[in-house]
Design a binder for these strands. Structure first.
Lengths: 234, 234
DNA sequence: CGCATAAAAAGTGCATGCAGATTGATCGTC
DNA sequence: GACGATCAATCTGCATGCACTTTTTATGCG
C-alpha cells in the first residue's frame, strides 16, 4: 500500500537483517523477565509485583501487567486473581515430567530427521558435529554448550514439523536453568560427543528407529546429570 | 468494611453483569474468545479489534488487551505491533504438522498409559469404552463426540506425565475446529469404536508398543477424515 | 479514469487514577 | 502474654485519556 512517510523518529532501518520486533515495550519485558527466570536471576517462588517491575523498567503498570499475563500463559509465572505473580516453582515431579517429555520429543525429532532431512541438512549436521571434537579435547565447556544447543536445534528443524519444533523449543526453554551446569560434570563432554555420534550416524544412515532411540537415551542421561542441580525444595 | 474474609468471594467479583463462573474479567474473556475461535464462531483471518470486543463484552479496552495478549501466547491469535489481533489462520502446512504432532503425542500417551495406568484407570477406560457401544448403534454423533473427548482425555491422564498432558491438551484445543465434523462422515462412528477397541485391548494387556501404534494410527485416520474440512477460506 | 498524495477516521500503545482486595500492624479482650 | 478483630498501607483489576500509528477516504495531477 501507500507509504505514509510523514512520521519521523522511528528507525526505519530495515535492511536485509531480520527485523527484530523488539518493538513494543511489552515484548521486550517478556523477553527480559523470561530470561531472568530462565537464567536463575529470579528464583522460583519469588513474587513479581507490578509496581516494582514498572519502576525497574521505567514504564507504567499497564505494559507490566500484559507482560505478566503472557509469562503466565507461557507457564513461567503463576497467577491468581488479586495476587502477585509468582515465579513458577517447578516441582520435582513436574520437572521429571518435562525431562521425560523432552526425551520423547527429541526422539521424535531424531527419528523424523533421519527420515526427512535433506542432503544438505545431513551434511551440515555432520560437519557441526565433527567440528565439535576439538572443543571436547580442549575441554571448552562454554563453547561446547553453545555447539550443543546448535546441534539439537538442527535436529529439531530437520524433523520438518513446525508444531513439534514449537513444543520442543518451548520445553527446552523451560528446562534451561536445570541443564546449564551439566557440562561441568567430569567427562560429560566426551560422553556427550559420543552420544551425538550415535545419533548422527543413525541419521546419516536414514535409520529413524536407531536415531530416535539414541536421542531418547541421550536426553535421559542429561536428565540424570541435571537432577543433581534440581533444588529439591519441594 | 470487610465483611467475610472466610474464604470466598469468587462470585462476588461481578457487580452489574450476570453471574460469572470464575475469576477475573480477563479470564472469562479468554475462555469466551478461545471458545468462539475453537468452535468456529469466529473464522481464521478475522480481525479482532479491541474496541469492538470491549463494547461487546461491556468492559474497557484494558482487559481486552490482556486477553488478546494471552490468546496470542496460546497461539490462537496472531499479534503484531500496532495491528489488530488476527485469528490464527492455520495454514495447510502447519495444520498438517499439528495433526502429525498430535498422532505422536497420542502414541506416547497410549504407550505410557499401557505401562503406567493403575488398575482403576484401566477399568475406568474400559468401562467408558464399552459404554459407548450403544452410542454407535444409536448413531448419536453428538454424544459419541463427547464420549470420544473423554476417552482420549483418559488416555492423556493415564500417561502420568503432566507436561505431556499439557502439550497434548493444547494441541487438541487448537485442532478442535478442524475435527468437529468428523463423526458426520458415514461409518466413522463404528470405525472409531473399533480403533478405540484396539487401543483399549493393548492397554489392558499392558502392551505399550501396540497401544502406541494403535493410537498413532487412530489419529492419522482422523487427520485424513478431517482434511476435507480444512482450508475453509484460503 | 488511474495513480499517487494528503487529510480524516479508526485503532493501538501506554500512562494515570480510582475502587476493591489483600496483607500487615495495631489494639482490645481474655 | 496469646489470640483474634479492626484499621491502615499496599497492591491488583479495570476505566479513561492522550499520543502515535495504521487504515480509510478525499483530493490533486497526469
Amino acid at each position: 500500500m501507500q507509504s505514509s512517510n510523514k512520521q519521523i523518529g522511528i528507525v526505519k532501518q530495515v535492511k536485509r537483517r531480520e527485523v527484530i520486533r523488539t518493538g513494543t515495550t511489552v515484548e521486550q519485558m517478556v523477553r527480559a523477565i523470561a530470561d531472568m527466570i530462565v537464567t536463575g536471576a529470579i528464583l522460583p517462588g519469588e513474587k513479581l509485583d507490578e509496581i516494582s517491575l514498572a519502576s525497574r523498567f521505567e514504564v507504567s503498570r499497564t505494559p507490566v501487567r500484559e507482560a505478566l499475563r503472557e509469562l503466565g500463559a507461557m507457564g513461567l509465572v503463576g497467577r491468581e486473581p488479586n495476587r502477585s505473580a509468582i515465579v513458577t516453582n517447578v516441582t520435582g515431579s513436574y520437572l521429571h515430567s518435562m525431562f521425560e517429555a523432552m526425551a520423547e520429543l527429541e526422539g521424535i525429532c531424531a527419528r523424523l530427521s533421519a527420515e526427512r532431512m535433506t542432503v544438505d541438512e545431513r551434511r551440515a549436521l555432520e560437519l557441526e558435529h565433527r567440528g565439535s571434537m576439538r572443543l571436547v579435547h580442549a575441554g571448552a565447556e562454554e563453547e561446547y554448550s553453545a555447539h550443543n544447543t546448535e546441534f539439537h536445534t538442527r535436529l529439531y528443524r530437520g524433523a520438518h514439523n513446525d508444531h513439534v519444533l514449537e513444543m520442543v523449543m518451548q520445553t527446552r526453554a523451560r528446562l534451561a536453568p536445570f541443564r546449564r551446569a551439566q557440562f561441568r560434570l567430569p567427562g560429560r563432554l566426551a560422553k556427550s560427543y559420543q552420544e551425538h555420534d550415535v545419533i548422527v550416524t543413525a541419521i546419516v544412515r536414514a535409520d529413524g528407529q536407531a536415531a530416535g532411540q539414541a536421542a531418547y537415551a541421550h536426553v535421559e542421561i542429561v536428565s540424570d546429570a541435571s537432577a543433581v542441580f534440581a533444588t529439591p525444595g519441594e
